[in-house]
Design a protein around this nucleic acid. Sequence first.
DNA 1: TAATTTAATGACCCGAGAGTCATTAAATTA
DNA 2: TAATTTAATGACTCTCGGGTCATTAAATTA
Lengths: 214, 214
Amino acid sequence: MSAPPPLRKRRKEARPSELLAAALDLFVEKGYAATRLEDVAKQAGVSKGTLYLYYANKEALFKAVIQEGIVPVLAENELIAAQHTGSSFELLGKLLDNWWNKIGQTRLAGIPKLMVAEAGNFPDVAQFYYENVINRGRALVGTALERGMVSGEFRRSDVETTIDVIIAPILMLLIWRYSIGCFQEHEGDPEQYLRIHMNLLRQGLSKSTEESQV
Amino acid sequence: MSAPPPLRKRRKEARPSELLAAALDLFVEKGYAATRLEDVAKQAGVSKGTLYLYYANKEALFKAVIQEGIVPVLAENELIAAQHTGSSFELLGKLLDNWWNKIGQTRLAGIPKLMVAEAGNFPDVAQFYYENVINRGRALVGTALERGMVSGEFRRSDVETTIDVIIAPILMLLIWRYSIGCFQEHEGDPEQYLRIHMNLLRQGLSKSTEESQV
DNA sequence: TAATTTAATGACCCGAGAGTCATTAAATTA
DNA sequence: TAATTTAATGACTCTCGGGTCATTAAATTA
């Protein structure tokens, strides 16, 4: 019948990342506007006031969420591309693998859906995301494509547009999973999806020996 | 110096569609929660009170927006598929053309981005959208694929997954345009994008005569 | 163990926007 | 043209949630 002891632990170091993780989860699930900071705090095991000790306001929290873990993965892929020897198609495969392991299979996978949904309300964050994530990702794919065209491994086509067509199913896989995908009765196997995408690309990009160019 | 006359026209018939068009624009641009009904009303040339004469509340307006103009286009494409004679790849091209003309180039193009962003907050609308739009669209592509595999035009692969890989760049084109695409310095040509996608598919789906199956 | 510092709390304030309704006036009918 | 109907209005209420801050108590220092 007595009030339970409050027992508030002080963990200054751990709070920011825990708050970011909770915020990412809720932003992705409900969208920015529909997410209550009190719920973010609760999911991080903390009170609303504490959240404001670490982030000035809701928008600052949002920006921090977006900028969280993207740079290291991109740098890693840029290293992979620089060190690669072998066919250009194999390079595309390596990049996709690393992306899948470091982003697709982690909590970061929710970011594309979040960014798509909120780009209109946060132009500066969208700009940042475009320049530091999208553009660098596109450049990686573009380099692989051009290399393959020069070597004769790939047939020629407009590189900038082809980049977008190649990336689209990869982004869509994540966007789908965090939106309408929840309502699919029998959700598919992402690894098979990526495998089939790569199969289409191997044959579709190749310089065919008999088919006419159009 | 005199107050201008109020001049309120009564147009019971035209209001609902005008309100839906305004709501779609703003929902797509700002997201559901960040859209003010007063702004929707203003853009439709009407007062907030009038909006409530036609839609019970914000959620009802949202549902009406989603269900707006999708059924006729799908029915049209189902007819195209039923009447088609010719190669399966040509059928895919026809479906894509009609989709582009009737959805991609109209205001309806904003719906996929909106649905992706808000699926989590409106499970029943998402369910409806999945069953009545996504599933019927997938079925159309699936039929064309199976037909091509049976005839030997396409190589064999898991149909359900291949459908998703084919559809992804098409959906992504619209989602992109209404989100991060606004921040691209040099935005691409959608028709070229679709052409390159189809080129990749023609070669990628085909039963190649010399390459080994994997 | 007393004094000091600061992480953490949650009751509170306040503005924004969803939804209401008494009033106005355009159209229709008598 | 007077009476009636109803489309349209916008001032209003009320709830919800972002953001504040005086208070509490855990850790640290003297």
